[in-house]
């Protein structure tokens, strides 16, 4: 009986996120982190989700955010040597808010360029204003939630030094330290990366004193079109006691989103067909 459990588990996730050349060869920490980045942010050529955030502050006051997120990966360049599905390059994000009411139809457009500053635009419908905005502040709150901009679009894996500190039956435990300490508020963070799927199940951020002050937890995972996908997650600020719980609904991959959706034209005119 005790063996059935891990076996079922392995069979269920038939798509190995990391190509392993035989079971005897353990992946390196760089391979693990790259695979986690791919599974977390790059599954499929594109994707869509209806995203709800529930923000509860330390006093128990509750706020909500609702948005549609469209994502498209920029295909690898012609001279790219590796497998196309392993490519983790530039990405385009289209984020249109529905709630709260005062930001209804407000839209973010992000061209993510790993290792460089992203290009970001903000569309304010009441003014018909397309404002290009600074992306220097990557670790500030995303729309008042406990998530940072960088949590939403993915932190560049080259920004940190990664070290595999433990391999358990279930997880690779990776500790990461920033290369540029001045640019971040953490001293280190530890990720529990699920071995079978390479989903990040938990992250603990530590301050200079080594104290955990911020945690991420994946609360619900499902398989969508063959891709293991986080469907519910929570970010907790242990200092303020605030939490943000995010749920992803109507998740779909490989929709064939056209590249031109991610342009100023579609900030003014929402791509209704693709947002459902």
């Amino acid at each position: 009986m005790k063996i059935v459990y891990p076996l079922m588990f392995a069979a269920w996730f038939v798509t190995p996120a990391l190509a392993q050349d035989g079971d005897d060869k353990a992946p390196t920490v760089d391979e693990i982190v790259a695979a986690a980045n791919r599974v977390g942010y790059y599954q499929g050529k594109d994707g869509r989700a209806q995203v709800k955030m529930e923000i509860v502050d330390g006093q128990g006051r509750r706020r909500e955010r609702e948005m549609t997120i469209l994502r498209r990966d920029v295909p690898p360049p012609k001279d790219y040597q590796g497998k196309p599905e392993d490519y983790t390059g530039d990405q385009l994000f289209y984020v249109r808010f529905r709630r709260p009411a005062d930001v209804n139809k407000t839209t973010f457009l992000v061209h993510k360029r790993p290792g460089k500053d992203d290009d970001r635009w903000l569309y304010l419908p009441a003014l018909d204003l397309v404002k290009r905005i600074s992306s220097a502040d990557k670790r500030s709150s995303f729309v008042g939630s406990n998530f940072y901009y960088e949590d939403v679009s993915g932190r560049h894996i080259g920004a940190d030094e990664h070290r595999l500190v433990e391999t358990t039956k279930t997880y690779y435990v990776v500790e990461s330290r920033p290369k540029d300490k001045a640019s971040v508020e953490f001293a280190s963070y530890k990720m529990w990366i699920h071995k079978a799927t390479f989903l990040v199940v938990k992250v603990e951020y530590r301050d200079d004193a080594g104290k955990v002050y911020r945690t991420y937890e994946a609360l619900k995972v499902g398989k969508v079109q063959g891709y293991p996908t986080v469907l519910k997650a929570r970010m907790s600020d242990l200092r303020s006691k605030g939490t943000t719980t995010v749920t992803y609904e109507d998740v779909a991959y490989d929709l064939g989103l056209p590249a031109n959706i991610f342009t100023e034209r579609y900030l003014r005119r929402a791509p209704r067909k693709w947002m459902r």
Binding site: M8, T168, T170, V201, K220, G222, K223, V230, K232, E249
Partner: peptide
């Protein structure tokens, strides 16, 4: 170490993207 989230490690129903 953290417990597994719902959907990992147990026989969860695969998510049907249409009905969900």
């Amino acid at each position: 170490e953290p417990g597994l989230p719902e959907g990992l490690g147990e026989q969860a129903e695969p998510v049907d993207p249409v009905s969900s």
